[in-house]
Design a binder for these strands. Sequence first.
DNA 1: TAGTGGTCTAGACCACTTC
DNA 2: AAGTGGTCTAGACCACTAA
Lengths: 253, 253
Amino acid sequence: MDESRGLRGQPRYQEMADLLIEEIAAGHYPVGSMMPTEHELCERFEVSRYTVREALRRLEEIGLIARRQGSGTIVQARDSEHGYVQSLSSLAQLLQYPAETRFSVSETRTLTADRATARFLRCRAGEERVCISGIRRIGATGKPICWTDVYLRPEYAGIARAIGKTRQPVYEMVEKTFGERIEQVEVELFASAVPEKFASALEVEPGTPAMTIIRRYTGHASRVFEVSASVHPQGRFTYSIAFSREWRPVSAG
Amino acid sequence: MDESRGLRGQPRYQEMADLLIEEIAAGHYPVGSMMPTEHELCERFEVSRYTVREALRRLEEIGLIARRQGSGTIVQARDSEHGYVQSLSSLAQLLQYPAETRFSVSETRTLTADRATARFLRCRAGEERVCISGIRRIGATGKPICWTDVYLRPEYAGIARAIGKTRQPVYEMVEKTFGERIEQVEVELFASAVPEKFASALEVEPGTPAMTIIRRYTGHASRVFEVSASVHPQGRFTYSIAFSREWRPVSAG
DNA sequence: TAGTGGTCTAGACCACTTC
DNA sequence: AAGTGGTCTAGACCACTAA
């Protein structure tokens, strides 16, 4: 009876959501109009209300619909993201540095995670990791733009030798060399201060304002296989992201 | 039977979530440790699994816990280390702040752009702008998470009165009130220091490390109609962006 | 008053991790 | 094999909106 993991191995509500997204994009449900009621969707898809609501929750999360108790569900937008579309390369832009920057390794070491480190690395206390640290510069001689610590599972340590000798991001090397498949990437950005440890390497005073970017790469079975932390001192680096409105030849009704 | 709307008129899952958030903050469930299983929470609160899962969903949304199928639920943060965590599922959410934050205006003024300001605002020197400044907080009384300056073209100044009285983002108000159509949005993030001017309003020392976020909204004919600059002091705010593989259109294979 | 979405129950089977 | 979270069903009552 449960065909939730049908052809694509996706939950039923996700299939439903995908289909409804397509239909909204196709103009089947124009912006400003009402969606079918949950009851009607139950009948159409032959699923329970739980499944319908999980599907609609996805549409709501990406801003396509708004639900109003007592009133109904209204179509808010024809495309997700408030009409803005990230360019196809933006995920890569978010993850990697421009080609004209160079990374040079200054230290490689193996560590055993204590409790605090384990939390940071999303692993268990006692597990081992290889940590590759270094400086990223613009060109070969420019001012450093960040200090980076890359933490890898020991079985991927072989990659350490190639780092800095290629412009390929570490996660791509892991993907291609070991067949790891990235399921999710998480990026954190927050204000910080440059620690004494590598202040001189960055050619700034300790305590200088900085922006820290943490990236966590998750592979199969929610296994975090790479974590990197980059500290960018004030004035050396700006993160810039642009969105354009997607152009569509047909206006919504 | 259903006491979901008990004393506070809140859903049962929200009461549960609030309590669990308090308990995590109090150290009852230390970061890195496992939460009780869903089954145990059902028993403790005498609710069905649906209610437990709705509560845990809230905790997950704000980054306090991570759930792993087959393994359990782990405590990820105590909500104190990097301050308020905004979890984003898409880049476009960089544009707005969560509903539980409030903006209060502390100053409104008109300025004429000098050359440096004009560069920042992407306008010509000598042009006028209205600048609305204020503080954003979590809830009504929490610590400030940022100081924001919003620069608007004078013809849109009427919007100033509505700011802080609605949760609608400013750019949306401009879009709906004046029919402006956003063609592009640009977001910049970089390290900075808290200026003396509003350090006390943010309850920090001048010079404290901060993360500045600049958003530029471009309308018709590449005309920048709104620019905002937000300064987030260290420890008050973290951006967390997660990408799933699903983001890419998966070929039906 | 009828119908909507919001909340909730008490089950069930599944996918996954761990032992 | 046991236990976890993920998905799903078939009901129920509630708060709210609109006719």
